[in-house]
């Protein structure tokens, strides 16, 4: 018990453990443990240079401002591009790793990258396929239901959020597209309606009244303050 000096007794003696478990105590001596001590000055690594040759930088490579110089070797996967690339470059050039803004911008850029890439793929010969890319088929081939109902798993409750995370950006993108198309349509309608409006102005009637009438809504009293938002307002 913790309330006296004695350590609680162990269920098995070292001899019993050695007999039951292959290799028990093989690394009992810390000197046999490869990461003790943590630092080993002068350790043999295979390097035959003091400083590595520099890899050719084909295009300006983003880097952390906590680096004093460009490291000599770097990855070349997925170079910066598009709006996500601009956000990422800004995050690297403006904020150090010590700033939350650095990481939050990079995560935001990841979401922008996904939307950009899905839209780009729509115009390609291989658009994204949610069914195949999410691997959802495994629900059938690898016992989705019985795996989840076996035992007492605590993750089953929030797994319902996963489809929201997957489909969320698509729904948001679709919503923005619809709103944008609607706004564009109304702007075109308004321009088409201008000659009528100009005639109406000549008679001393407000343009808003005319447009509202054209849209089939009730005339607006110009002396009454407009509400902050009305469906269909542009």
């Amino acid at each position: 018990m913790a309330y006296t000096a004695e350590k609680p007794p162990l269920p098995e003696t070292p001899e019993q453990l050695r007999a039951r478990i292959p290799g028990w105590g093989a690394d009992l001596d810390p000197r046999d443990r490869p990461s003790v001590p943590r630092e080993v000055p002068g350790i043999e690594t295979g390097a035959h240079w003091d400083f590595p040759e520099r890899q050719v930088e084909h295009s300006p490579r983003e880097r952390s401002i906590e680096h004093g110089t460009m490291p000599p070797v770097f990855g070349t996967s997925a170079p910066l591009k598009g709006a996500s690339g601009a956000i990422r470059r800004f995050a690297y050039e403006r904020y150090s790793e010590g700033r939350a803004a650095h990481w939050l911008l990079l995560i935001a850029a990841d979401r922008v990258d996904a939307v950009e890439s899905h839209l780009t793929a729509l115009a390609s010969t291989r658009p994204d396929n949610l069914l195949t890319e999410t691997g959802i088929k495994a629900e059938i081939t690898h016992h989705g239901l019985s795996s989840r109902t076996a035992g007492k798993r605590v993750d089953v409750g929030h797994q319902a959020l996963d489809p929201v995370i997957v489909a969320g950006p698509w729904i948001v993108a679709a919503g923005l597209t619809i709103l944008g198309a609607d706004a564009l349509r109304r702007r075109i309608d308004a321009r088409t309606a201008r000659p009528t409006t100009s005639t109406a102005q000549g008679t001393g009637t407000g343009a808003g009244q005319q447009m509202g009438q054209q849209a089939g809504t009730a005339p607006v009293d110009p002396t009454v303050a407009a509400p902050s938002y009305q469906p269909g307002m542009s």
């Binding site: 350790i43 295979g46 390097a47 003091d50 880097r63 952390s64 790793e97």
Partner: peptide
């Protein structure tokens, strides 16, 4: 890289010569 300050002390996972994106 096997030759930077950290690699030379066995901290291979903390190499300073291979990752421009983060220190």
């Amino acid at each position: 890289c096997g030759s930077c300050f950290f690699c030379a002390r066995g901290l291979f996972s903390n190499c300073h010569n291979v990752n421009p994106n983060a220190t």
